[in-house]
Design a protein around this nucleic acid. Structure first.
Length: 728
DNA sequence: AGCACGCCGACT
DNA sequence: GTCGGCGTGCTC
């Protein structure tokens, strides 16, 4: 009798033994097993001869799910993430699977079924079918010729195939079997390079260098200023990989960008099977695409962070676009960083990986400097010149207006020239606070340590952290004064103000309030492209990747706010963000202009930005980080804890600190402190930082510490370890 | 995580 | 006298 060890989706660092019975369970196979009172899907990790458990406690595997077993490389990657990010293996694996595959009763969708003629079916003569049953005759002939057909193949024989298949299965002419075999690799496409645009010398060189490392692990940092054509480099590499009959994985930060890139890819490579995987998919779509990728049928897989775990049997290349982007970091459950996991994946599979960015993370810059990554630069814009950046000093003689007159004049000029402008402000809503002019009271969120934001449009106050809504106070609850005013500017107020200033202009506000509904975002993109908009007022979401040819002016309001942050990564983020926003200006022949409003025009960050000197900025930041002992020169882990009772969290983190002390060899344990948002949605939040210059020492420490934290069973506290946190 | 078991407060 | 609160413990 053979035992299989199965990982299940439970928060326990153990595998569960099952008797495989008469089944031949492959390693990596997904199995339905009885577990307690319920049934569960597990992943088979090992087969062993004996179990430590007495035989009478073993239960049997119920069935093997009809999908290709997970390849050992996928298992290894999950194992690594489990160890490194301190999260149970079964839960890591479960998180990477489409939800449909987590149901014990899983059936393959019928589109993946194969049908085979039964002996009875063989005995039927197609000539014996009625003359007018044209479809049936054709299908039967196809079966006799092929013996076995997938439902996709039958559909190309006749459009009536679905109904016929159902009838014939009933009649016993054919039998359905689930197709678990790997798909055929699509034939290499000889005509692929035909429509490729000419590359600049730098692009050409990047493509050649990376291509010369095919079939081996070699990581590349592709640093290319906005508009330098990084995407073109990805496309040509992907084309080469597909032409070799291999698969390419392309990771992108945000779901908003995938449809755009996907359609570009499909236009460019009409014959290549492209599959996109992102959180906007429903369960069955996700499943179908995952299966296409895992059988090797999809040649190009385009996806957000979770896609890094998609099994791809013929993987030949990994690309991580906008490598520095924070959305690659998962912020709950297994807190992995998809960019880091992608590097491991490439190493595991011995394929090249390209990390692309205009403003690489300091981690990537350091890796390149140390020679761990090859460093490729794209420093010219083939289609347009760099936008001119100007720093507008708002410190002196500040009028109460949100935009000074010089900026208004620039807007005016665009209106005259019928070009578009973007005003970027990192605050949605009308005004960030509702303030009492008499006593200084301002509306707080009852559940968070935050002020409520005034939303005039919906006549409400809203918390941007927990979503809490309240009606607008008529008078100050503290002093009764009725003179309550919105203080500061959000997108709504800026839009309103601009409408007053430019009554003739067509103004469009783009923030998460105006794009809530499903297709509103792509509708807005169309409006912008149709040039039925003169001035855009927007947040974050307009910063990334979009290409608006008529947009020649970008105005950044409120950038300074980020400089006040205590997070040591704030300058890095601000630089990245400003570069990204600036990149929206002048992507075509029209030259772009970027105006950054600040009270600190002499700040080194702005000075570097003016010179388009990211390398200099990064170098300065690295020196600073090294001097003050911050990442990437040290490695960090954050213990995050929260509870509805502040006393309980404090007790927990204090106990955690005490438990850490005797284990802390080669690591520094800091004092527990309240989180940057100390109360969120009614929960008190504390955190405790541990760091070390040695990853190994940190990992050794974590193993012991986590065990003690778990032993301290405290159900009132929710806590998690965040390895390589990206926010302090 | 589920899901049970188990021992203390307000209700038909 | 029961329904149900969530603390504790286990799942191969």
């Amino acid at each position: 009798m053979s035992i299989v060890q199965v990982a299940l989706d439970v928060p326990v660092d153990e595998l569960f033994d099952y008797d495989e019975g008469a089944l031949q369970v492959p390693v990596g196979g997904l199995v339905a097993v009885p577990f307690g009172r319920r049934r569960a899907v597990g992943i088979t990790l090992r087969r062993v001869a004996h179990s430590k458990l007495p035989a009478d406690r073993l239960r049997s595997v119920e069935r093997i799910l009809p999908v290709t077993p997970l390849p050992k490389e996928t298992l290894a990657l999950a194992r690594f993430c489990s160890d490194y990010y301190r999260f149970p293996l079964g839960q890591v694996l479960a998180a990477t699977l489409p939800t449909a595959l987590r149901r014990p009763s899983f059936r393959l969708p019928s589109s993946f079924s194969r049908y085979r003629l039964t002996p009875l079916g063989h005995s039927i003569d197609s000539e014996a079918l009625p003359q007018r049953a044209v479809s049936a005759r054709r299908l039967l002939i196809a079966f006799k010729r092929g013996g076995c057909l997938t439902s996709l193949q039958t559909r190309s024989v006749t459009s009536r195939s679905a109904a016929l298949l159902r009838e014939w299965v009933q009649a016993g002419w054919i039998a359905r079997e689930e197709d678990m075999s790997d798909g055929e690799p699509a034939p290499p496409d000889a005509q692929m390079p035909s429509q490729e645009p000419a590359l600049t010398a730098a692009q050409q060189q990047a493509v050649e260098q990376i291509a010369s490392s095919f079939r081996s692990y070699s990581p590349w940092l592709l640093e290319g200023i906005t508009g330098s054509g990084k995407t073109e480099v990805y496309l040509q590499l992907a084309a080469q990989v597909c032409a070799r009959g291999e698969q390419a994985l392309l990771l992108v930060p945000e779901i908003n960008l995938t449809p755009q890139l996907e359609s570009r890819l499909k236009r460019r490579f009409p014959t290549v099977q492209i599959v996109s995987l992102h959180s906007g998919l429903n369960e069955s779509e996700r499943l179908v695409r995952w299966i296409r990728a895992s059988r090797g049928e999809a040649q190009l897989v385009l996806g957000t962070r979770l896609a890094v775990f998609t099994p791809m049997p013929r993987l030949g290349l990994v690309i991580v676009d906008e490598e520095h982007d924070a959305s690659y970091k998962q912020q709950e459950g297994v807190r992995y960083h998809a960019r880091d996991v992608a590097v491991l994946l490439a190493r595991e599979r011995q394929v090249p990986i390209v990390l692309g960015s205009a403003t690489p993370s300091l981690e990537a810059v350091l890796n390149a400097r140390k020679g761990r990554f090859g460093h490729l630069m794209l420093s010219e814009r083939p289609l347009a010149s760099l936008p001119s950046i100007q720093i507008v000093d708002t410190a002196k003689g500040t009028p109460p207006d949100p935009l000074p007159s010089s900026v208004l004049a620039a807007l005016e000029r665009r209106l005259e020239r019928r070009e578009q402008s973007l005003v970027f402000i990192n605050r949605r809503g009308y005004a960030p606070v509702l303030l009492c002019r008499a006593c200084g009271w301002s509306a707080p969120c009852p559940r968070c340590a935050a002020r409520l934001t005034l939303h005039l449009g919906e006549r409400a106050l809203r918390c941007h952290y927990c979503g809490h809504r309240a009606s607008i106070h008529a008078s100050c609850p503290d002093c009764g004064n009725q003179d309550l005013r919105g203080l500061g500017h959000g997108t709504q107020r800026l839009e309103e103000w601009l409408a007053g200033r430019f009554p003739q202009a067509r103004i469009l506000r783009v923030d998460s309030d105006t794009t809530r509904r499903k297709h509103s975002f792509s509708r807005m993109r169309e409006q912008i492209h149709e040039e039925s908009v003169d001035i855009l007022v927007g947040t974050q979401m307009l910063a990334k990747g979009h290409d608006f040819p008529k947009l020649t002016l970008v105005i950044v309001v409120g950038a300074d706010l980020m400089l006040y942050s205590t997070d040591f990564r704030a300058p890095e983020r601000l630089y990245q963000q400003l570069t990204q926003v600036a990149g929206r200006a002048g992507r075509s022949k029209l030259t772009g202009e970027v105006l950054v409003l600040t009270q600190f025009p002499q700040h080194p960050l702005y000075e570097a930005l003016l010179r388009h000197d990211f390398a200099g900025f990064a170098q300065g930041q690295l020196i600073e980080r090294e001097r003050s002992g911050f990442p990437p020169f040290v490695h960090q882990v954050m213990l995050r804890a929260e509870s509805t009772s502040e006393k309980t969290v404090v007790a927990f983190v204090s106990a955690a600190a005490r438990a850490a002390a005797p284990l802390a060899e080669g690591v520094t344990v800091y004092d527990a402190v309240p989180a940057p948002m100390p109360r969120l949605a009614g929960r008190y939040r504390w955190q405790l930082l541990v760091q070390s210059t040695s990853r190994a020492a940190l990992q050794r420490f974590l193993a012991g510490w986590q065990e003690r934290l778990r032993a301290g069973r405290s159900s009132a506290v929710r806590w998690a370890l965040d390895v390589d946190p990206i926010d302090a």
